[in-house]
Nucleic acid binder design. Structure first.
Lengths: 143, 143
DNA sequence: ATAGCTGCAAATGCTTTGCAAGGCC
DNA sequence: GGCCTTGCAAAGCATTTGCAGCTAT
């Protein structure tokens, strides 16, 4: 294990390497570092800017272009999910399965709606189309 | 009726003037023209760019800045609804009540989901917050 | 060896803003 | 008259891209 992986367990790194391999992605230093940040703890919700800020604390931080690149790649290969919210920024979620989100506008926080609260959305796609995804964002404000 | 209102009925213009007045907005030439474009036919879904292109066919087209300005104003006063979709552009809808949307990615088209297809979303807001709005976008792709 | 990655900086695309001139009450 | 609006052009911000040099297989 080299210096770049000092703060992750061997186990975590191995799983991540498998994850990348399964997706057909080369295990570059930058992807491993970003992957470690993203997947070492539970579900995370973040923007490119937030991830880049976090990555800048690493010894050899990946560039902003690489952060965007990696996020797109991870999303395209099912390791992450993109979420459209009001405002300019794109959000990402490490939980990829179907679920909905709360967005707290005053704090700019995005978080999952617990499964228990989710009714089944049973919507039929129009002729000639199929449903790619269902995006539900419940916007909240403080009382 | 002056030259700026040639292609709208007197009736339509009067209603629009009332609408603006009710919202506390001055009935400027640009707002009346934009309002006519938006409300003369049924429900419409559009982006700022689309509206600006359409407005450019008028004799004295409002500037792009005014188009954005007016859209924000109308949205803030409940005459329009903003919709967040993937991609950089903000969409607007002349139907302001609660309803959901289909977004056809390959054609970049946004349209309403018929009310009949909509199940009730009965989601409780977390402590200390209230629900501002529920945004549902079902993304479609061609088969 | 070679196809794929990365970093930098410049470019892009949508949206916002500063400010001077014009319009509505 | 005085405040609100508009138009223009410049700025802003998140994101993308071109390209030369590096890296994984």
């Amino acid at each position: 294990m080299d210096a770049n992986q000092m703060n992750s367990t061997n186990d975590t790194v191995c799983k991540l390497r498998e994850k990348l391999a399964a997706a057909g992605l080369r295990p570059t230093r930058q992807r491993l570092e970003i992957g470690n940040l993203l997947f070492e703890s539970g579900d995370r919700h973040f923007t490119a800017e937030m991830l880049h800020a976090e990555a800048n604390r690493l010894r050899y931080p990946p560039s902003l272009a690489t952060v965007y690149n990696t996020l797109h790649l991870f999303a395209a290969h099912g390791l992450l999910r993109e979420i459209a919210v009001y405002g300019a920024k794109t959000w990402y979620d490490t939980k990829t399965g179907p679920h909905f989100h709360f967005y707290r506008e005053d704090r700019e926080e995005l978080f999952d709606i617990p499964d228990a609260l989710i009714p089944i959305l049973n919507i039929a796609a129009p002729e000639g189309t199929m449903i790619e995804a269902i995006d539900v964002v419940v916007r909240l404000r403080s009382i």
